[in-house]
């Protein structure tokens, strides 16, 4: 299944998935350990992806992702369902990554960079929508990799995972207004990288 179809199906079955999550959580809390594999299977890519974005190392990311699920399993009885299970899980991932990054003194925060106007963004977006899907996917990936860790997380959670600003604030421990500002800046930075990639591609064709 490609990412587009997957995203659509995820949106369509959003409320059903939430019910599914709760069903499996209840199963696990009642002693059915195997039921947890459903939750691992469903969120493994996202948890691993977030870990990798922050730690920039596949081994560390895998270890953190595994630790996240083990921690989630151990404290599942304390999950009260006030937030979405995914939000709760991403918060565990994010906190785990922050702890590791502090230990290893890795940079988390982004620096202010050149910004684009909204009109510039719309123009770049229109041009990007016209290019080949595979090429676009590759451009997005490269642009994402150029972003600092915290920006990558915000962009992924908001624009790809459809998490609400309030949920992202809960995950990252930032205020909702701070999250909004950071998402806005991160998107601009990503557009800037996408624009450079686009110009490079055009230059290469010429």
């Amino acid at each position: 299944m490609n990412s587009v179809t997957r995203t659509h199906s995820r949106r369509q079955t959003g409320s059903m998935n939430r019910k599914d999550d709760h069903y499996y959580i209840e199963q696990v809390v009642n002693g059915n350990v195997a039921a947890f594999s459903y939750l691992v299977e469903k969120y493994r890519d996202m948890v691993y992806g977030l870990s990798l974005k922050m730690l920039k190392n596949t081994e560390d990311a895998e270890e953190l992702a595994q630790d996240t699920f083990v921690k989630a399993f151990q404290s599942l009885s304390s999950y009260q369902g006030k937030s979405k299970f995914s939000t709760w899980l991403y918060r565990i991932t994010y906190n785990g990554a922050i702890t590791l990054m502090r230990k290893r003194k890795l940079a988390l925060y982004s620096l202010d960079e050149q910004r684009l106007s909204d009109e510039d963004e719309l123009t770049i977006g229109t041009r990007l929508a016209e290019i080949d899907q595979e090429e676009l996917a590759e451009s997005l990936k490269r642009a994402m990799e150029e972003l600092p860790a915290d920006d990558q997380v915000l962009i992924t959670l908001f624009y790809y995972e459809d998490q609400r600003v309030e949920d992202i604030a809960h995950i990252t421990g930032l205020s909702a207004s701070n999250v909004k500002v950071k998402i806005h800046r991160a998107r601009k930075k990503m557009y800037l990288y996408l624009k450079e990639n686009l110009e490079e591609a055009v230059f290469n064709v010429l």
Binding site: T7, D45, Y48, L52, A129, L140, R187
Partner: peptide, 15 residues
């Protein structure tokens, strides 16, 4: 527009 673009994003997959 950016949300639409991000539909083409393919995040890293777990092993």
């Amino acid at each position: 527009q950016f949300k639409n673009l991000m539909k083409s994003y393919q995040p890293e997959k777990a092993p």
